[in-house]
């Protein structure tokens, strides 16, 4: 509830005071509307010489300067990306093969998530976790030519995290997993087909961001089947990675596109990224989230 402006607090009668407040509000609204109209007229009159429209300030366009943001045509970065761990997948020489498993003693929550998840990513194999340590699984998966391991974690029957380890030489990323919405609970959703989806990696700007984006992108084969008209989106907004899965259809003239969500939805947030395969104790961290890191809401790392 809004408090009464100080200059009106002298009016003791509540009804009268309310009336005055409303009147003032109406006046303000009217003023604003008129100001806008006059601005529009001015713009029309000046035509091309009109001052540019004012953009609303957002966290995105007032983002803190970050020198690791990759500029368009940065050759050093593109060259580095041509020889990184995912170059094989993006070059089309390697077809990703993914092993997915749960944490110890997983419950229904994880299994339901996996059911949705497995339907999205092609060439994915679920293995029961049992009592195997992750390091042993890494060894096994490497020997079986898997390119990635994904472990879904839960705690107190809630999904909490996801570990993604690229093989054979890493890197390993740890994510916080939230806002999971099963496909079944999405309204008007479609059913996915087994076509290889396209991947849309949105908004990964910094070097770390691009690396993370490429890492996730490398889960999907680089030859999407366009006739399936399915697209997986990993959209980065303020360091939150939104995962969506859609089917699309273009209008006749190709001017519009309509989407149908296939699901699931979930959100990832990077917690750490370290080189090499899974080894949280000895791994060399490229980035790790620390408690005192969040001092500005305009600083983003991805």
């Amino acid at each position: 509830m809004k408090s009464v402006p100080r200059e009106l607090s002298g009016i003791r009668d509540k009804v009268a005071r309310r009336r005055v407040v409303l009147e003032e509000k109406a006046v303000k609204k009217k003023d604003r509307r008129e100001a806008r109209k006059s601005r529009e007229k001015e713009r029309e009159r000046l035509g091309s010489e009109a001052p540019p429209k004012q953009e609303p300030r957002t966290l995105e366009n007032t983002r803190e300067h970050d020198e690791t943001i990759v500029q368009r045509g940065d050759e050093a970065v593109t060259e580095a990306e041509q020889v990184d761990e995912f170059a094989g997948v993006f070059g089309g020489e390697v077809t990703p093969k993914i092993l997915v498993t749960t944490g110890y003693r997983a419950t229904r929550v994880t299994y339901e998530f996996l059911k949705d998840f497995v339907a999205v990513i092609p060439n994915i194999v679920y293995y029961k976790r049992g009592q195997y340590e992750l390091k042993k699984i890494v060894k096994y998966a490497t020997s079986k030519d898997f390119t990635d391991i994904i472990v879904v974690r839960e705690d107190h029957k809630l999904l909490t995290g996801l570990v993604h380890c690229h093989l054979p030489d890493g890197p390993t990323a740890e994510y916080r997993l939230t806002s999971y919405l099963p496909s079944g609970r999405i309204r008007n959703r479609g059913k996915s087909t087994s076509h290889t989806p396209e991947v849309i990696l949105n908004n990964f700007t910094t070097r770390l961001g691009r690396r993370v984006g490429r890492m996730i992108g490398a889960l999907f084969p680089h030859n999407p089947e366009f006739r399936g008209r399915q697209a997986v989106t990993i959209h980065n907004q303020r360091d939150f990675l939104f995962f969506r899965f859609h089917r699309y259809v273009f209008s006749e003239a190709g001017e519009r596109v309509r989407l149908q969500e296939l699901g699931p939805r979930f959100t990832l947030k990077l917690k750490s990224l370290h080189g090499g395969t899974f080894d949280p104790a000895g791994g060399e961290f490229e980035w790790i989230q620390k408690k005192d890191m969040v001092t500005s809401r305009r600083r983003f790392v991805l």
Binding site: H235, F240, F242, R244, Y248, F250, V257
Partner: peptide, 23 residues
């Protein structure tokens, strides 16, 4: 984080950005 995530989701305008990218 929860509230920031919700705000980021609103700022992302996912459907629109995906449509734009596809076009």
């Amino acid at each position: 984080d929860r509230s920031r995530e919700a705000k980021a989701l609103r700022a992302a305008k996912l459907d629109r950005t995906i449509e734009k990218e596809l076009l």
